[in-house]
Amino acid sequence: MQTTPPPRLEVSGLEVRFGGLTALDDVSLTVGDGQTVALIGPNGAGKTTLFNAVCGLVRPRRGTVGVAGRPAPSSPTGLLAAGVARTLQGLGLFEQLSVLENVLVPLSSLRRDAERARAVLADLDLASVADRPVGTLPYPERKRVALARALVTDPGLLLLDEPAGGLGSADIDALAATVRALAEDGRAVALVEHHVDFVMAVADRIVVLDFGKVIAAGTPDEVRGDPAVEAAYLGGAS
């Protein structure tokens, strides 16, 4: 008898409060290997807070977070070891370091891992700028450096916080192809994003948050036609 592997990410009944404010209220979702799940919702809906809870940066009042069937580690090193990597909303790059050095920071050995880092940079069309300081690159390339740094640890679960933010349409199309390829490689991808067309192009499932609650979840087509979603978000955004 074949058993079904546990989802790569399983969030169950998560509640996060900041003082009197309920940032997440009974939020549950799963992301399986090879699946892309997008979290959408208005500003302040709790999307990034959910990522922070998954990464142990905020402590939930209730609920659980599991990674590949085990409780999610709360330390950054534990998360890396569990195969979880994340990009940050504000890029979080080291402007003074080179592209290659930025990508090498999460790794343990420059000599042993440099080849892998260069391969990841080549995959994202960054090989030619590997030795340049990140601060000298145009914004779309810096976004790709942030993605490369998340990919260099070969994560099974990738959390992308507004990956399309600030990009033009050509760069967004290229990013969509990259994200689809990552999922086809078998990675679980969870992303927070405002850019609706991008989300519709890459997501297998969409979870819509509003005031910390899941107000809709389903395939892009199901979510697109949901009146509650249109009222809360899509109607105003499109």
Binding site: C55, L57, P76, T77, L79, L80, R86, L88, G92, L93, F94, E95, Q96, L97, E101, L104, V105, P106, L107, S108, S109, L110, R149
Partner: peptide, 25 residues
């Protein structure tokens, strides 16, 4: 400039919180 420890020392100096998120102690 040539070791992982040195890179993590520099990264911590430039941006300690980001470094921590990337697993740097």
């Amino acid at each position: 400039n040539r070791t992982s420890l040195g890179l993590q020392l520099r990264a911590s100096a430039f941006a300690p919180e980001t470094s921590r998120l990337l697993g740097v102690r």
